[in-house]
Amino acid sequence: MNVPAAWYLVLAAVLFGIGAYGLLTRRSALIMFMCVELMLNAVNLTFVTFARTLSDVGGQASVFFVMVVAAAEVTVGLGIVVAVFRRRHSTSVDELTEMKG
């Protein structure tokens, strides 16, 4: 018998927590993007686990679309990082303070 779905769900929750902590504490925009990827992967793992548990292929289809959106998000996000780096010569999010009131 396969391991219970709860094990994979706990693993996904831990992965999501690690990604969220990194997103909240790190300063480099690149590392923050990687932490967003970690969180997206945790959600994908949850989707696949429920697809197996409920025998519904819709969970796997959702993961497929999440992957497409993640690819688009990384492309545009890293384009923004490159554009910001050209102006500021830094990827630290603390130095982007033009809109500070």
Binding site: N2, V3, Y8, L30, F33, M34, E37, N41, N44, V48, T49, A51, R52, Q60, V63, F64, M67, A70, A71, V74, T75, L78
Partner: peptide, 23 residues
């Protein structure tokens, strides 16, 4: 392990192959 074979292949090709390379 959870019989999502296609997604595992896409995971390696798109994430490990393309997204990390962009990074």
């Amino acid at each position: 392990a959870q019989s999502a074979d296609f997604l595992a292949a896409v995971q390696v090709i798109v994430y490990a192959g393309a997204i990390v390379v962009i990074f």
